[in-house]
Design a binder for these strands. Structure first.
Lengths: 237, 237
DNA sequence: CACACAACCGGACTACAGTCCACTTGTATC
DNA sequence: GATACAAGTGGACTGTAGTCCGGTTGTGTG
């Protein structure tokens, strides 16, 4: 599925951005690009209430004891809900973690999208836009690292939703690199798809957490380092 | 502990290489740099036999059913050994996976060490050495990715042994970058420690597996991409 | 309003990682 | 060879993720 979306995508940042956002919206489970009223049989009212209840309960428990220390049974218990109900709403703990940051993720995407629109209008070089994006991403990831890390560890299958955060990041970076290439900002020989992955690799939850907690890198340092690597893919000035 | 070793380490590649290897040898559990006969009370003969038996059994089961599909209980059962015994030898599944590739890892280190010695003698630029190292690493990681991935997922604590493979890779890359810096091959502003991490990030088991299995990148492609990124940290020619 | 059925719910159940501890055995010492 | 005890051993036990299924309830249709 990812591959299909990827293949279909228009190279224009703004366009595919919105599309990706749509495609990955959790309320629209099927019908990838159908944009409005596919009333795919709504969730029942009690189910919606439960989802909300679970999310709030999980949020509180996570805040109180840390993500890793809270079990699914704990959440179900605290929300006075059976485990079956919990797992019907969120197929695994990683999914729940992702759902918990869904709204903020959405806002972050929105913000980045806007920023890129503005910067494009101002003719900011695409590689600068890329650096700005990565900078913002570093700070965003740092805030949500407990949830992101947990989600990454508990992803059962590789194709699964745990890759969702990574996916739009990838599409964005790739889009910016492609734009940069068209604008002649890039070294000619560059493998854009690989480069997008490589630039995002240090922001992978596992890698990022290691850099922060074991190596003690500051956010500024990581961000600056990434900026250097972005500069590395530019044509020699 | 890692931090300490790291701090103490001589910047000379060859030296710290050997030291790291020594320090991380699984048979020498304590006494980090004591180099020869600390007869730290040997394992009992039956224990040694069991370790071997377990390793062989695990190897066979993994080969037959895949790493993920084999449980610790399976291994214990097939080896006619209690779970207590199994866990006394290998504190978790990740540790067992690492032990399983210990010898080949050792040989790989040896090979790389030799190669770097030769290339240094021939005055091969350090950045070229680095590219060669990363190239070899990509192929090595690919062979052992099932074990490496499992080990990475099952690492309980960050400081734990699961970082062992990463650690010497890091020391090597960092050492090469430092040598390159001294030789004036590097951009002046470069953050060497971060760069070492960033160059290795695409070889992180999770990231690497994603690139291979979902994105379908070939080994050649990854290797070539990394080479480009190494070139990116060089001074403009 | 009554009916049907899909969606929902709770909690018992399985499978697995990892711990614990009472018991056994190898080995160093005299 | 007898003794002491550290090291090793097996398997019962705990805690957690995730599945399953019989019973319940909300909602669209006549």
């Amino acid at each position: 599925m990812c591959a299909k979306i990827l293949a279909d995508c228009s190279p224009f940042v703004n366009l595919f951005y919105v599309r990706v956002e749509l495609a990955l919206s959790p309320t629209i489970s099927l019908g990838i690009f159908s944009d409005s009223d596919d009333h795919e049989r709504q969730e029942r009212r009690d189910a919606v209430a439960n989802r909300q209840l679970i999310l709030e309960t999980a949020h509180d428990l996570f805040a109180q004891h840390g993500v890793a220390a809270v079990s699914m049974a704990d959440i179900a218990g605290a929300a006075h809900v059976g485990k079956g109900t919990l797992y019907r709403r969120f197929t695994n703990k990683g999914e729940l973690c992702l759902a918990l940051m869904d709204e903020q993720m959405r806002m972050f995407q929105e913000r980045m999208l806007n920023q890129m629109r503005v910067e494009s209008a101002e003719n900011t070089p695409y590689l600068d836009q890329l650096a700005h994006f990565l900078d913002a991403l570093v700070y965003f990831v740092d805030i949500h690292i407990p949830l992101l890390y947990e989600a990454a560890q508990l992803a059962p299958s590789l194709e699964s939703a745990a890759q969702r955060p990574h996916f739009w990041q990838y599409m964005t970076v790739r889009g910016l690199l492609e734009s940069a290439a068209r604008a002649g900002e890039l070294r000619a020989d560059l493998d854009i798809e690989f480069s997008a992955e490589a630039l995002l690799a240090p922001v992978n939850a596992q890698v990022f957490r290691y850099q922060r907690q074991i190596l003690g890198f500051s956010l500024e340092r990581i961000s600056a380092g990434l900026r250097t690597f972005v500069a590395g893919v530019a044509i020699a000035a």
